[in-house]
């Protein structure tokens, strides 16, 4: 009843607005609430972040900070040899960039492959298919902190993994103290935690492929591998593109589960760019909000490029499908 009253009260106002501004004005009117929320939580913080990145000092409030132009960017980019992070003024930033790049390369490849294989298996008529779909999706529902803690407990010196190792007669290993294993663990745990989501996207894509194509291939006695490469993979293209780019963006933003699992160590071997920003901006005794803001802007630019690639790929795939 009150809603009806509100609608009746608004009706003449909306009619007047439409008369003055046309259909475009009505679209604006209905978009306004969402745009306001987007503005408050995205646009304003983004603008503030850009301003922060051009200020110096250790104070938190903008009014207490001095304008230094592109000084923070200059500090981040000052390097004698970009391949050797210790020659850079902000060596940990470049270590984090290198680590993040390596992480993305391996984790995204692994994620796409594992999700693809899982989706293909779950798309078959196997016993307990519903159960296995739930099992693979379950880690997605867990908080990343919980994921990190679970695996930390498994891999620590007195953890489950070492219990098994010692039962087999070997000496315990401090898994997370080994640079290679800690990095691999970050990749593996992140893949384990998120593959359910990507599997779901690919599964939806697989189920959308017309069955008659497979029936035709079967009648022609086409080998399974050829069916996969010539039917499944091309028709799964748009979904794969989405998975690839989403995984890529998520990979660049890796923080929570890796931070809880390894803390960035051993040394800085699993220090990723988001942890660097967090440390410099908030957590460290060597706090510098302007430097953290500049690093986050640079990371944002990388994400913009990745998003543009996603849009490009999606549009290309749409055009391909239309033909």
């Amino acid at each position: 009843m009150p809603l009806v009253l509100i609608a009746r009260g608004l009706d003449p106002v909306l009619r007047l607005w439409q008369r003055c501004t046309g259909t475009g004005g009505m679209i604006t009117f209905f978009l306004l609430p969402n745009m306001a929320i987007f503005g408050v939580f995205v646009i304003i913080p983004l603008v503030l972040n850009i301003i922060y990145s051009m200020t110096g000092g250790v104070d938190i409030l903008l009014k207490d900070r001095s304008f230094i132009g592109l000084g923070q960017y200059g500090r981040l980019l000052e390097c004698q040899d970009y391949l050797v992070s210790t020659t850079c003024r902000e060596d940990q930033f470049w270590t984090a960039v290198r680590n993040t790049g390596t992480f993305v390369l391996f984790q995204v490849s692994l994620m796409v492959c594992v999700s693809m294989i899982t989706a293909l298996i779950l798309n078959r008529k196997i016993a307990g298919r519903g159960f296995f779909r739930a099992v693979f999706f379950f880690p997605v529902l867990l908080s990343p902190v919980v994921v990190g803690l679970i695996w930390r407990w498994i891999l620590q010196r007195q953890g489950l993994m070492n219990l098994i190792v010692t039962q087999l007669g070997f000496d315990p290993v401090v898994w997370l103290n080994d640079r290679f294993f800690a990095f691999s663990a970050a990749i593996g745990v992140s893949t384990w935690a998120h593959m359910g989501f990507y599997t779901l996207i690919l599964l939806a894509g697989l189920q959308a492929i017309p069955k008659d194509l497979y029936e035709a291939a079967e009648m022609d006695a086409t080998p399974a591998s050829r069916v996969f490469w010539r039917i499944t993979l091309p028709l799964l293209g748009p979904n794969l593109a989405v998975v690839l780019v989403l995984a890529l963006i998520r990979g660049v933003q890796i923080f929570d589960e890796a931070y809880v699992l390894t803390g960035g160590g051993p040394g800085t071997s699993t220090l990723f760019i988001t942890q660097y920003i967090y440390e410099v901006g908030f957590a460290s005794f060597l706090r510098n909000p302007g430097l953290a803001a500049a690093a986050s802007i640079l990371m944002g630019l990388v994400l913009v490029v990745l998003t543009l690639i996603q849009l490009g790929l999606s549009r290309r795939a749409e055009k391909g499908n239309a033909r």
């Binding site: 401090v174 803390g263 960035g264 040394g267």
Partner: peptide, 14 residues
């Protein structure tokens, strides 16, 4: 004991 100091980056307290 290596894991206290080595297994973290930055100023993380352990």
């Amino acid at each position: 004991l290596p894991e206290v100091w080595v297994s973290a980056a930055g100023t993380t307290y352990r």
